[in-house]
């Protein structure tokens, strides 16, 4: 067990180091640009006084390491913002303030987060079910016509951009067949049923493309496991083929699938940006695209840090789950 504890510790330290490194990169990329940093941060419509204030806030007169330290302090203990007339406290983790909307970035993100989480989690359930199901089925039906059809469909799935699937689904289902209304986000707490109905299409759009990747991976992993000795033993003992494939081989094939799923969070976040924009869902993806278009730098930086945090967390969880699923990893 000490081996496993040490592994956990190493992984946790690694995740923290990665996060710190990301914060350095983000800081350098966005706050050490050659242009007028205060002007860029404040936005195109700022008055010279406001720009001056932002420069004070970011401590642009200080040496670089002190500026970065100030930025880190904000993240861990919070900092005060002077808005000219009053002083506002921004509690940790302080991601700064949007000078265009005068809102704190963390507040903006927190109001949008439930939409994105609803979208990604729902889609994840779908893509795991669809992906693993398809993968198992095509490994089971190997060499038959149904397997060729499944393989062709998943290949087409991997080749279709998420916004194309979404567009086509929306036009066919909402526009032509009128089976569903055009999606409009409803809070889960307000009306769970409407929440689900409205998210159904976005879930499918995001899930189909991810499912294709899972189907391919599951199939490959299943075929590998099916060729192993213990499976041959099961067969020799006369265990039913359905049980061999569906239970014993699937168990062996799950480890890489778990790893892919957590590692896929980054890609799912990217897909969520597209899905939200396409369907007009007010999540953090849509907010990010908006912030990029109006050059609201503090919001952009906050989004990068928050999504980076989730992705690093997911990667760490993936490695741990992988080690749990396959203990040889820790022992090695």
């Amino acid at each position: 067990m000490s081996g496993f504890g040490g592994f956990l510790l190493r992984r946790a330290v690694g995740a923290v180091v990665t996060l710190l490194a990301i914060s350095v990169i983000v800081y350098v990329v966005f706050y050490v640009t050659p242009g007028n940093v205060a002007q860029i941060t404040c936005g195109p419509r700022c008055s010279p006084e406001q720009v001056h204030q932002v420069a004070e806030q970011l401590k642009l007169g200080d040496p670089l390491y002190l500026r970065y330290w100030h930025f880190l302090q904000g993240l861990f203990v919070g900092q005060d913002f002077s808005t000219g007339t009053s002083v506002e406290h921004c509690a940790a983790p302080c991601l700064g303030q949007s000078y265009q909307t005068d809102q704190q970035v963390l507040d903006i993100i927190l109001t949008k987060l439930p939409v994105s989480v609803s979208l990604v989690l729902g889609a994840m359930v779908l893509w795991l079910l669809l992906g693993i199901g398809t993968g198992v089925l095509s490994a089971w039906r190997r060499g038959r016509v149904s397997e060729r059809v499944l393989t062709a469909v998943t290949l087409a799935g991997t080749a279709t951009p998420v916004f194309v699937i979404g567009l086509v689904l929306m036009i066919v289902v909402c526009g032509e067949l009128q089976l569903l209304p055009f999606p409009q986000y409803v809070n889960f707490s307000d009306d769970p049923e409407q929440w689900a109905w409205n998210l159904l299409l976005p879930w499918f759009s995001l899930a189909l493309i991810e499912a294709a990747a899972f189907a391919r991976l599951t199939r490959a992993a299943m075929l590998e496991t099916l060729a192993e000795d213990h499976i041959r033993t099961f067969r020799a003992y006369g265990v039913a083929e359905r049980s061999v494939v569906g239970r014993h081989a699937l168990r062996g094939a799950l480890a890489p699938v778990i790893a892919l799923n957590a590692n896929n969070v980054g890609s799912a976040v990217g897909g969520a940006v597209l899905t939200e924009t396409l369907f007009g869902l007010p999540g953090i993806g849509q907010e990010l695209v908006h912030a990029v278009k109006v050059v609201d730098l503090p919001v952009v930086v906050g989004m990068v840090l928050v999504t980076g945090f989730f992705v690093v967390l997911a990667n760490a969880v993936a490695d741990v789950l992988y080690a749990v699923a396959d203990r040889r990893v820790v022992l090695a």
């Binding site: 990301i22 990217g270 990029v292 990667n315």
Partner: peptide, 13 residues
């Protein structure tokens, strides 16, 4: 471990 889409968007800004 950096989300490609998010970083690209941010850099383009």
């Amino acid at each position: 471990s950096m989300p490609l889409m998010i970083m690209s968007l941010a850099l383009l800004a």
